[in-house]
Nucleic acid binder design. Structure first.
Lengths: 161, 161
DNA sequence: CTTAATCCCGACAGAATCAGTCGGAATTCG
DNA sequence: CGAATTCCGACTGATTCTGTCGGGATTAAG
């Protein structure tokens, strides 16, 4: 059970753009160097993010990418959906498969297992909707900065450890 | 983002065994027929479940598999761990990577993204620990059974979609 | 205008994983 | 004995994933 590294890299890319937010476009070369990731691969990923409207590009010299919104306005769910498609732990439980019309699994009537995947999906999306890019942007500041109220968005975030 | 069908099939296998619980061993051929799954493949999966101590086998004619515990005593987390290994949405967030000593990612100091994967992992495991096989065993009874208190563990589950 | 930086984009390839098959050995019941 | 069944390792075809390559389009700077 796992996300792909596509998701991992894409999120790290977004974090870098978040740190750069407000300072003009950041080039992929810089991001790749900072995160030690293969730049050609990041090119692929950033396409998805652009198509999803999360970043805009500036072409030409001194161009690059920048966020279209402030980090605290970008939910992690949006990022991961852009990178990996709908959040579904199993085809039986794609998003929008809430109540009726699930054509993917004709066994649904007998298939009580569906309940499991739906619950997991909701747990994941709940977590993801409750976090924004701003939650990940700050480098850990081991200074006198004992985790202040980072984000003004206490959207639940059950932290149910 | 998804579980493999290995998990899906394995859970369905366990559900069948759960329905058969207390009635002696059930042969894989029966389970495969009931769930319309390839029997040779189920053979592979049930090995993992046996090695994890969730089922026991009886060899020879009229043999088969049966649960080692009652369905309500088998957490879904145990089943999926047996089938798919540790629940980790990303290598940065394997189980047991709670506080210190995470050797998988040497960038952890700078890598705030870790927080994301840990939260997702905890959301998933929380859901999985709170459900047992008994929650999936009953065929849907559309009778007067209006969703009783299924599990005693309101682990948040924001349902925030 | 020329040059360099950068995005853009499609095609390709190697590796890994996964779903599923096959064949046969060992075991047990009738 | 013979049938049913678990047990187990090897194999394969398909798919997906990670990552590369090459070149074209666009823009800022000198």
């Amino acid at each position: 059970m796992s996300f792909s590294t596509k998701g991992e890299y894409g999120v790290r890319l977004m974090v870098q753009l978040g740190r750069h937010y407000g300072a003009g476009p950041a080039s992929l070369a810089d991001v790749a160097a900072e995160e030690e990731l293969p730049r050609p691969y990041l090119e692929q990923l950033v396409m998805s993010l652009r198509d999803a409207g999360l970043v805009v590009s500036t072409r030409g010299a001194h161009g690059g990418y920048e966020l279209t919104r402030a980090p605290q306005d970008i939910r992690m769910a949006d990022i991961l959906r852009a990178l990996e498609g709908p959040i579904a732990p199993m085809i039986c439980a794609t998003e929008e498969t809430d109540a009726a019309h699930e054509p993917a699994c004709d066994r649904t009537a007998r298939c009580s297992v569906n309940l499991l995947w739906v619950r997991i999906r909701d747990a994941i999306t709940g977590t993801l909707e409750g976090m924004t890019l701003a939650d990940l942007v700050p480098l850990r500041t081991p200074l006198a900065d004992p985790q202040p109220a980072v984000q003004p968005r206490p959207t639940g975030a059950p932290l149910g450890v």
